[in-house]
Each structure stands twice: as structure tokens, then as C-alpha cells.
Amino acid sequence: SLKSWKEIPIGGVIDKPGTAREYKTGAWRVMRPILHKEKCIDCMFCWLYCPDQAIIQEGGIMKGFNYDYCKGCGLCANVCPKQAIEMRPETEFLSEEG
């Protein structure tokens, strides 16, 4: 929810860092990355290259994707040396999520 003009700091200053996180770019996605964990070797290439920091990893172990921000570019699937990431059309997931 956007602030009214009376609530905005003088000069339109943004007074909190990293507020872009409130803007979910996942809605842009046309193709969805799917992880096949059995093929994954946790090389972290996907994490390194993801332009949107949408790879979830813990201590260097690949956990999955942050679909709130993933724009579906498919770069992760392309740099993956083991083809452990598959890009599927977003339409396939429409029904299960209502």
C-alpha cells in the first residue's frame, strides 16, 4: 500500500534501505524453474548468476527458488553443468494454485 502525500518524508526521501523487496517481480515470470535435486551437485553457479537473487541456498547447499522474485529468465538452467534445473511454462501451475 502506497503512502499518501502527507505521510511521505519531505523531499521524497526514501528513509528505509532495500524497500524494493516489497515489490514482487515474480509476477513477470512466464517460465518457472524446477529443481531436480537428485542431479544437483551444489556448485552454486545458479546462485552466483541469478540476476534477481531468487536462488535459496543455505551454507552452499541448493534449496530451491524464491518465486516471489524469480523473473523466469532461465539463466540458472543454462549455467547449470548438470541440467538439474528445468524450465516449465507457468501455465502448467495455474490450476494447482487456483
Binding site: 540476476p51 531468487a54 532461465g74
Partner: peptide, 9 residues
């Protein structure tokens, strides 16, 4: 951070 609006890829 996340949520920037540069093109996918």
C-alpha cells in the same frame, strides 16, 4: 536487493 526492475536475464 531483490525486487529491482531490470529485465529478466
Amino acid at each position: 536487493t531483490q525486487g529491482h526492475r531490470l529485465c529478466p536475464g
